[in-house]
Design a protein around this nucleic acid. Structure first.
Lengths: 204, 204
DNA sequence: AACAATACCGAACAAACGTTAGATTTTGAC
DNA sequence: GTCAAAATCTAACGTTTGTTCGGTATTGTT
């Protein structure tokens, strides 16, 4: 057990690895048990470290939460953007929208990330503002696709695009509250159901 | 300050009034700050009572939470059923669905009741089962309306009604997370937007 | 091998938590 | 007005919480 992290230039220090492990563990615990029930001591135990040692890596418990949230939104954003890119820049905005929504749903389910909700409102102002900016950027991805579809004349008029965007994302975010991984439905099928509503409605 | 509660038969004891006040105050606090951050002492202070006195009315903190949740779902159910009744039993199921969704949204916004989410998962099993049964009953109202519309041939085929129901209710439940009472949108307008999607979709 | 920096331990801290129980006040029936 | 019952207060309890800090390993460089 030596010479694992190199310190020359592209160094990966032990601290960085421990910090990453703490974020991973904390993310899992926050998701499983809710942000409020997870104590510093539990995070420490799960990361096989002593509670006090955490404060070598984070200045406070809130700082851990901030890091978790930041990574969460960041990762989701990356996956959604990757899905859009994979659909091809020349594909229909609606095709890309479907891909984006599917990626969003998959990430939400995989990380059960409505746990976001449980925390944001009570973060210290500074952190909350920063996080809400991240959320806005994330939402802008979907808004952009809708706007592009609108510009290309693919959509009917007479609706408020930003409301629709929030309703749609809300529907998907809420899936995490009722989704049963052992059930018959896949995330893709749910996304298709949603896209079916968006394209055709459900009324004859 | 005397002879307020009568004790003959239709008595309203002081304890009942205090208990009701505690539930009211606790509901508001749970909604504003999240279930986990609200301590027994804070509830007591907000109800202008001493912390210890709470245990004359509730046997534990969880018991308060249970009462709050129970009243929440019950009240929402009553309001939704009232809205459906007001629409008239002979009106179109879609009209009644709109009325029901609007009532659901209004209640959710008025009480910011996505706070439900934050608690259910970690209630003692007994309480949780009971509460989830209540939620199922509540959801059944909307499912019934959808089924009726389907039976009357108002809807197209090829979609999963239960998934649609959950997506729709999720969209509305999530509204509480982004809704701005000072903004230009009313709950009714949001409901209309949603019904517009359901009836026509948004694609040309 | 030696040494400074890094990373972690382990014990302690004050504060806040839910809860209990005995004393005390308020209430309503007579 | 009296008196038991009902309702509340008051003070404390044992835990657990986030956090601090001096010491102790571990690490990478020379």
């Amino acid at each position: 057990m030596q010479t694992e992290g190199q310190t020359a230039e592209g160094r990966i220090t032990k601290a960085e690895r421990t910090r990453a492990r703490l974020i991973e563990v904390a993310t899992r615990l926050f998701q499983e048990h809710g942000t409020a029930e997870v104590t510093v001591r539990r995070i420490a135990a799960a990361a096989k470290i002593e509670a006090g040692s955490i404060y070598y890596h984070f200045s406070s418990r809130d700082e851990i939460l901030r890091a978790v949230l930041e990574r969460g939104v960041g990762d989701a954003r990356d996956e959604v953007l990757a899905a859009i890119a994979e659909a091809g820049a020349d594909s229909s905005p609606l095709v890309r929208l479907r891909a984006a929504l599917a990626a969003h749903l998959k990430y939400t389910l995989r990380h059960h990330f409505s746990s976001r909700l449980k925390a944001i409102r009570h973060l210290p102002k500074r952190l909350r503002d920063h996080h809400m900016q991240q959320e806005r950027d994330y939402a802008a991805i979907f808004a952009g696709l809708l706007r592009e579809a609108q510009r290309k004349g693919l959509l009917r008029g007479g609706f408020d695009a930003s409301v629709v965007r929030m309703l749609v994302m809300g529907a998907l975010t809420w899936v995490a509250e009722w989704y049963d991984p052992k059930g018959p439905l896949s995330p893709d099928e749910i996304t298709d159901e949603l896209m079916g509503i968006l394209t055709k409605g459900i009324v004859k």
